[in-house]
């Protein structure tokens, strides 16, 4: 039995070694709260592994397994199957993986689980680079962003991960943001319910003050600005076809308003910023027309 050496009002300890102002930590509390105690979490290496703990100590009250970087979905599928075969299909199994572990190395196993309609919830917390290993670029790093492996700014556009997920026509998929915590909570509840019939996926935008060069106190503000500048639209997709924008943006802010809050874009050339502006505007129009 887990020995309770600290008290916490939720399922995660209050003292977690995440950086001050960590977007993931805020998201994780909401995620765990909605999932509840009858759940098992799979966490690969990455920032979320801070919730796995270290040595004999953990900061989560629910059982968990730290898997490998590329196979969060596969571990979750196996765990779910094990419970199902013991008549305990009510146990919720969810993965909590970073963007690198999802859009890059974990894409294959995630796709497999989605195609098989395994009844798991997969949450990608997106801080737009490999932050835990020291800010290396990932497939989710946005155009023009500096990372240690895109020192001149990333020259290509990010992957449309939610689009890839939606193409599997799973019961529920959504983007979310720590800038809109009520929206995140609602989507978590819908996603949890959707796992009764198949997989659900939530992609949470989670600013990283350390990697983005933003101020810790600006985490929620930066996240909000990403939504308001159309860099991170909030929407959900039911069965891969029913698109709903959950936080409509009628008067978008220019992307520069978002970029200027972060040092990682400070070296971006005007042409790149223009390109980014055109991309996000175009994407949003496309989204509204779906």
């Amino acid at each position: 039995m887990l020995v309770m050496k600290s008290e916490a009002r939720g399922l995660i300890a209050h003292g977690v070694s995440a950086c001050a102002g960590c977007g993931l930590e805020l998201a994780a509390r909401i995620i765990f709260d909605v999932m509840g105690a009858n759940s098992v979490v799979v966490i690969p290496p990455g920032c979320a592994a801070l919730f796995s703990g270290y040595g004999r100590e953990t900061v989560t009250k629910i059982p968990g397994f730290q898997g490998n970087l590329e196979s969060t979905a596969a571990y979750a599928a196996g765990i779910k199957a094990g419970f199902e075969m013991q008549g305990r299909g009510d146990v919720q199994v969810f993965g909590l993986a970073g963007d690198g572990a999802t859009v890059d190395i974990g894409l294959q196993s995630l796709s497999g689980a989605l195609e098989r309609r395994d009844k798991i919830l997969y949450i990608c917390y997106d801080n737009e680079a490999y932050m835990n290993t020291g800010i290396q670029g990932s497939g989710s790093t946005p155009l023009a962003a500096w990372t240690t492996t895109t020192p001149g700014g990333k020259g290509v556009y990010r992957k449309d991960m939610v689009g890839i997920v939606a193409a599997h026509k799973i019961p529920y998929a959504a983007t979310a943001s720590v800038g809109y915590v009520d929206d995140l909570r609602k989507k978590m509840e819908k996603a949890k319910a959707a796992t009764a019939t198949g997989p659900a996926y939530i992609h949470v935008h989670a600013p990283c003050p350390t990697g983005w060069g933003s101020k810790p106190e600006h985490t929620v503000e930066v996240a909000k600005m990403a939504v308001q500048s159309l860099c991170w639209p909030l929407y959900e997709i039911v069965n891969g076809v029913e698109y709903t924008v959950t936080v409509p943006v009628s008067k978008p802010k220019p992307v520069t308003e978002y970029l200027k809050l972060q040092k990682r874009f400070s070296g971006a050339a005007a042409s790149q910023v223009e390109k980014l502006q055109a991309m996000v505007t175009g994407d949003y129009e496309q989204l509204l027309n779906r």
Binding site: L2, K5, G15, E57, T58, V59
Partner: peptide
Amino acid sequence: VALEFVATKTGVW
């Protein structure tokens, strides 16, 4: 395996 639920005193940061 971790068998103890322990918070880090992050207040000192």
